[in-house]
Write a protein that binds this DNA or RNA. Sequence first.
DNA 1: TAAGTTTTTTAGACTTGTCTAAAAATACAA
DNA 2: TTGTATTTTTAGACAAGTCTAAAAAACTTA
Lengths: 216, 216
Amino acid sequence: MYTLTEENYLKAIYKLSVHTGNVSTNQIAALLATKASSVTDMLRKLADKLLINYTRYQGVSLTQTGEKVAVNIIRRHRLWEYFLVEKLNFKWDEVHDMAEEMEHISSTELIDRLDEFMGFPARDPHGDPIPDCNGNFKINDLKPVSAIPVHSGGIISGVRDHSSAFLQYLEKQELTIGKKITVKEIISYDNAVVLQMGNKNLHISRDVANNLLIAL
Amino acid sequence: MYTLTEENYLKAIYKLSVHTGNVSTNQIAALLATKASSVTDMLRKLADKLLINYTRYQGVSLTQTGEKVAVNIIRRHRLWEYFLVEKLNFKWDEVHDMAEEMEHISSTELIDRLDEFMGFPARDPHGDPIPDCNGNFKINDLKPVSAIPVHSGGIISGVRDHSSAFLQYLEKQELTIGKKITVKEIISYDNAVVLQMGNKNLHISRDVANNLLIAL
DNA sequence: TAAGTTTTTTAGACTTGTCTAAAAATACAA
DNA sequence: TTGTATTTTTAGACAAGTCTAAAAAACTTA
C-alpha cells in the first residue's frame, strides 16, 4: 500500500505532531536523520496522495487518512515489541530496531491475530499504549518525574527516551516499570532529583527525570 | 547486509539450482516475473559482491557465501510459515505471501529465538525441511506420486507447488500432510492417477500427481 | 522597517532497480 | 557449415529516494 519510506515519514510526522501543532521540515529531517531538501521532496509526494496537509513554508499536519496510517504503524510496532519481550524473552532495550523492521509487514489480518495471540495487551514493554484494531487508544496521561512536586510520587509507567543507553541505565538502577517511587528532594543547583524507592534513596539527573514517566 | 532485491535474487537462484546445475538468465527472469535485461544487471552486481559465479552467456551458480545467504533466507521463510500456522492459526494456503515479507527481517538473534520458541520444528507446514541455525538440513528425499509404481504408496509429506490454488484443492480432497495413500492405477490415456486413501478411491491428474510428494 | 540569520525550497545530479529496443552471442537445423 | 531462432547482453531511459549548492521566503532584532 505505502512504501517503507512513506510509512517512516508518516510515523515521524505523527510523533512530532503529538506534542506540537504543525511540524516543520527541519524537525522531520532531524528525526529521520536526513536532509531538509529530501524532506521537502517527500512532503510534496505525501501531499499529492492526500496523506498530509502541506503548504510551502508552512509546515505539515497529517490528514485523517495519514493519521490512520501512522497509528496503524505504531500499533504494529508496539505489538511486535510486546511479542519480542513477552514471547521471545528479549529485554526492553533490545527490541526497538527489530520492531522498526517488523512494523512494515503489511498484513492487517496477521497483526490482528498476533494481537489476539498475545491476549490483546494494552501497553508495550516501554509502557506505551497499543492502539486496538480500529486505531483507538488512550493518549498517555503519564507525567515526567521532573514535573511532579516534592513529597509526591507514583508508579513508574513509561519512558520518553527509547534509546538502549537510557533503558539500560534504568535497568541498572532498577527503575523499571511497575516500581513505586517518591520524590524526596529537588536539588536547586542542577535540578537533579532525589527519589525514594523502597528504603533506598536514589539521585537522578534532570535529564533522566524528564524522560521517566509515572502514573500518579 | 543485503538489499531486499538481492535477497530475492539469491533465493531464486538457489531454488532453481537445486534441481539443475547452472541457472539461466531467463529462468531467473521467469521466476521473479521480471525481464532478462534486469536480471543481467543484477547478476553483475551479485558477481561483484562474490555471491555468485557468473560468466557472460554461461549462466550462474551460487558461491559458498551466496548459498549461505540463500539458505538463511529459506530458514527464515519456513520458520515464519510455521509460526503463522502453528501459533496464529493461519491455514497452509494463506501464509506464503506473509512469510515472503517476513523472511527479510534481518536479525539472526530474532530468528534463532523464534526457532527455540517453537521447539525447533523440523519441517514447515508444507513439509519442507527447516535449516538449523548453522544452515544444515536434509534435502527432501520425497518422491512425487507420479514417480512411484502402481500398488505402492506412502505418507503424503510435501508439495512442490505452493500456490494457494493447489493447496486449497488438496485441502478439499483431504490430501493433506500425514495421510496414507496407495497408487491403485495409472490411466494410460492421460497419465491420471487413481489413489486409494482409507476406503475411498480418488482420481488425480498428472499435474497434481507431479506436485504431491510422498515419503515411502 | 531594514539587515541579517535561519528555514525551506528549488535545481541539478547520483544510486538502485527497473524497462524497451537493439545488438551480440549461442544453439539448433538442414 | 551456413542460416535462422533463441537467449543474453548492452545502451539508453525512467522512477523513487537521496544529496549538495544555491535561491527564496520567513523570521529576528535592532
